[in-house]
Write a protein that binds this DNA or RNA. Structure first.
Length: 479
RNA sequence: GGGGUCGUAGUAUAGCCUGGCUAGUAUCCGAGGUUUGGGACUUCGUGACCCCGGUUCAAAUCCGGGCGACCCCA
């Protein structure tokens, strides 16, 4: 046997940053050599997976009554300026198109509130039109400063944004809860990503929102990544864009708007980071670019015939499958597809034909087993579910073990130093708590992420200012 | 936002300090042969000094600027 060769120069645990950089290149997820900073080429292995991610997210939204749109990529400056806190928050990140003859200045959308609500004002007339639930799949542009990272923070990213108009604040809040439910159904139950939904503190809200709720996913390096966020926009945007409806009582009222933004390309970063290991990627079954790869040991006629047969049977069951016919040796193919994260591999040669058996390798647990050929479909059906369950369970466990209580400033420091999330009492997440949050950020480099929606009971005092605690907050470093 | 490291074939690197060679090696790629049950071997071949300017008889090497990448801290 040949000498052990590691797939990566470093392990995920010892140096997450380098592991991440390396896996993106090795697994051909993105080519960062495109010659504009912060813009990368998404390669097939990431696109195929993200297509599936989009599919699950979009079909879940549609099931819940959202209808799809494609809005223009450009937004006129005029729209952009209508909501003052929004423009203030986003202005530094906007790419402007200059030299557009006679058209005024145009922004490349950094998000599309100001495009959607402009049209909402034309479309929404009556309470019968509400709730008005939309979404679009789009790429958006934000001028991130120098810390760009493939998938995690790029200047162009691919996302879904859902915009809804409601008759009342209660309805809007219901929508926010539905968005959280959607996040669980898709991010957790399909992509296998654990998260906590936080209500963000006053000082960390989306520009122009009354309240922001955001899901934080934990990265293996101990930092959290903000994933989907949903915002209660109250009626600020409705007033700015004059989105009104005639209610049952015959009065004109402003709608209550909510928006929800799952960024698929960024969530993909978490899929890589959370599930990957030192052999490479590990895809959850439903979002694997290829779900099963067949590696034949020889190109013998009978082996080839059997391989084709298996492929057809599996494809009939909607399984994405590939036969590896390259002239590499089997061992090299094994390592390659393991690095690529394909969940299942079938190995087949003359011996298996004779014994009517198959060797199956499971990427999630890195083990092989033998099964009867006739049991293949049933095996795949059961195992694919087990794979997802297993990956999700492991991720959940890791997440839970990374939350630690802290009672004093020193303890917060310690917990953050371990690369974990600190849970502690806090004075307030309204304006008055901001100073304490700044102290924490200055001394630990971590931010107050917010409170859980199902409110936890506070007791004792704020470890920073010593005032009576009103909230239980979570503190973490973030991307 | 602050700091650091760096840019030589598709990839990873040597050479740079102390200017001068046909720019070395491995891998990848292409052609041939032997192989194929966990990262094969062999023969031949193609391929590179990030861009702009400066110093110099002479620049991959020194200087300035630009562009880009990575890492750490906030």
């Amino acid at each position: 046997m040949a000498k052990e060769k590691e797939t990566f120069n470093t392990s995920k645990k010892n140096n997450f940053s380098e592991w991440y950089t390396e896996i993106i290149q090795k697994a051909e997820l993105a080519d960062v050599r495109y010659n504009v900073k912060g813009f990368i080429v998404f390669q097939p292995w990431s696109v195929l997976s993200m297509e599936k991610m989009f599919y699950y997210m979009e079909s879940t939204l549609r099931k819940k009554g959202h209808l799809p749109y494609f809005f223009p990529t450009v937004i006129p400056e005029e729209n952009f300026k209508k909501e003052s806190s929004h423009v203030k928050g986003f202005a530094p990140e906007v790419f402007w198109l200059e030299n557009v003859k006679g058209e005024g200045k145009l922004a490349l959308r950094p998000t599309s509130e100001t495009a959607f609500y402009q049209m909402f004002s034309l479309w929404i007339r009556s309470y019968k039109d509400l709730p008005f639930k939309t979404y679009q799949r789009a790429n958006i542009f934000r001028y991130e400063t120098k810390a760009t990272r493939p998938f995690l923070r790029s200047r162009e990213f691919h996302w879904i944004e859902a915009h809804c108009a409601h008759a009342s604040e209660e309805d809007a809040m219901k929508q926010v809860k539905e968005d959280m439910e959607t996040t669980k159904e898709v991010l957790h139950d399909i992509y296998g990503l654990p998260f906590i939904f936080f209500q963000r503190p006053e000082w960390d809200k989306f520009a122009g929102a009354k309240n922001t709720f955001a899901a934080d996913v934990l990265n293996p390096d101990g930092k959290v990544v903000q994933q989907p966020s949903t915002h209660l926009l109250e009626d600020q945007f409705a007033k700015a864009f004059n989105v009104k409806f005639k209610d049952k009582d015959e009065k004109e009222k402003y709608v209550h708007i909510t928006c929800y933004g799952p960024a698929i390309s960024r969530i993909f970063a978490s899929v890589i980071a959370v599930h990957g290991d030192d052999k490479g990627l590990r895809f959850p079954w439903k979002i694997a670019p290829i779900q099963i790869v067949i590696v034949p040991f020889s190109q013998d006629k009978n082996v080839m015939k059997k391989t084709e047969e298996l492929k057809k049977d599996l494809e009939k069951n909607n399984i994405t499958i590939k036969i590896d016919l390259t002239d590499k040796r089997p061992g090299e193919k094994f390592y390659y597809w393991e690095m690529k994260g394909v969940p299942l591999r079938i190995e087949i040669g003359k011996k298996e034909i004779k014994s009517k058996e198959l060797i199956i390798y499971r990427r999630d647990i890195d083990k092989k087993e033998k099964i009867k050929e006739k049991d293949l479909l049933k095996y795949v059906e059961i195992t694919s579910k087990e794979i997802d369950k297993n990956l999700t369970k492991n991720a959940d466990k890791l997440f839970e073990n990374n939350i630690m209580g802290a009672k004093t400033k020193a303890e917060i420091k310690k917990v953050i130093g371990y690369g974990k999330i600190a849970k502690c009492m806090f004075c307030s997440i309204t304006k008055s708590g901001e100073k304490c949050a700044e102290v924490i950020e200055k001394e630990t480099g971590a931010q107050v992420r917010g409170i859980k929606l199902e409110k936890e009971k506070a007791s004792g005092n704020c470890p920073i200012c010593g005032k009576k605690a009103t909230e239980v907050v979570y503190i973490a470093r973030s991307y």
